[in-house]
């Protein structure tokens, strides 16, 4: 049983093994292992592996209310296929002016030049859960070029309520001492349990 548990412990990610491997092996030596423990080791190793290799990780997140809207700053770490990681830094400002709205997004992916997107929208007719808006989008690139697009877009009205609920979850979770990434995982776990 101990031998099998030690073999399964090798499934933990390399970084985890480097930090906890020796003391974890010592614990496996000390404990009278059951089949349930062995299964638990395999499950925990796989969970740790999924967390560290495939899922993006929220490194930092800050949100604040501003007149008629809010601002959001995020730093998210995305794993690449070759094992390296890429940081994506983002800033979002949404302002609702009643009949219209303005959204400003500034983002930088890894070492690539940053890009800014400004969307000005005029609210239109509502049908069911959707509203048809007239928007103007400006993409401001680091090389100085600006791409301007006018289009009619359908806006999902439930998005605002979902966004506000998520902001509240992050706000209360961070107040309780959880990291943004832990809150993200809790939200994902809760969603996966929904029927």
């Amino acid at each position: 049983m101990k031998r099998l548990a030690r073999l399964l412990a090798r499934l933990y990610p390399r970084q985890w093994r480097a930090r906890y491997g020796q003391e974890f092996d010592a614990l496996l030596e000390d404990v009278n292992l059951t089949w349930r423990d062995v299964f638990g080791v395999a499950l925990s190793a796989l969970e740790m592996r999924m967390k560290t290799t495939t899922a993006p990780r929220i490194v930092d997140l800050a949100s604040r209310d501003i007149p008629h809207g809010y601002e959001l700053e995020t730093v998210v770490e995305y794993p690449r296929d070759d094992g390296s990681k890429m940081l994506v830094r983002g800033f979002l400002r949404e302002v609702d002016l009643g009949d219209s709205y303005v959204t400003l997004t500034h983002s930088a992916r890894g070492s690539e030049p940053a890009q800014t997107i400004l969307v000005c929208g005029k609210k239109g007719q509502v049908a069911g859960d959707f509203r048809t808006d007239e928007t103007e989008m400006l993409v401001l690139r680091a090389d100085g070029t600006v791409q301007r697009t006018e289009q009619t877009v359908k806006t999902w009205l439930k998005y605002d309520a979902i966004r506000d609920r998520l902001r509240e979850k992050y706000h209360s979770g961070m107040k309780a001492g959880f990291s943004p990434d832990e809150i993200h995982q809790q939200i994902q776990a809760a969603n996966s349990l929904e029927p």
């Binding site: 906890y20 974890f24 614990l27 349930r36 638990g40 080791v41 925990s44 190793a45 969970e47």
Partner: peptide
């Protein structure tokens, strides 16, 4: 179990 304990640690 050891897996759960070290997940928490």
């Amino acid at each position: 179990g050891p897996g759960t304990l070290y997940g928490a640690i």
